[in-house]
């Protein structure tokens, strides 16, 4: 192998490595921005056994800020956090939800009926833990048709 070929080979190896490393560096930096886990309340948490929520009721769980409904079709969970400024909304049977802070109104499915709330209330996915407890996942947004059957 003569000198020019060797130089070319070393040069291309170096350039490739540096480029790949730079990509890696950028990738690692980007990865760093989304940590594996944070010091925060879990986004999946058990709220109790299904029997604790009698059929046809809506239960407000203040520590988790959500309503749990048990309808004949199944269970579903709606956030109680108003999408306007984050007050806890009140549930009014047959009407929907009302925010006491600025008067936002939502229907039974959490859809905005009356401002100033810009978006409907969030719905959370449910599952059942091996210990037969309902588990809410706040990172699993679901559509208002969602019902969870035990």
């Amino acid at each position: 192998m003569n000198d020019p070929t060797r130089r070319r080979f070393l040069f291309s190896t170096g350039v490739t490595s540096v480029v790949l490393s730079a990509c890696g560096f950028l990738g690692a930096t980007a990865r760093y921005l989304s940590p594996n886990v944070l010091y925060e309340p879990p986004h999946r948490f058990p709220i109790g056994s299904p029997e604790e929520f009698p059929p046809g009721t809506a239960t407000f769980l203040p520590e988790h800020r959500l309503f749990l409904f048990n309808n004949p079709a199944g269970f579903y969970a709606i956030s109680s956090v108003c999408t306007h400024l984050g007050c806890n909304v009140r549930h009014i049977v047959g009407e929907g939800f009302a925010c006491p802070c600025h008067g936002s109104r939502f229907d039974e499915n959490g859809q905005v009926v009356h401002g100033p709330a810009p978006e409907p209330l969030a719905w959370f996915g449910l599952s059942l833990s091996p210990r037969r407890e309902l588990v809410v996942n706040t990172r699993q947004p679901v559509q208002p048709e969602y019902r969870f059957r035990v």
Partner: peptide, 14 residues
């Protein structure tokens, strides 16, 4: 060129 290549590969390895 050699130093450049070695350094680049080292970075890549890291």
């Amino acid at each position: 060129h050699l130093a450049f290549a070695v350094l680049g590969v080292t970075f890549l390895a890291i």
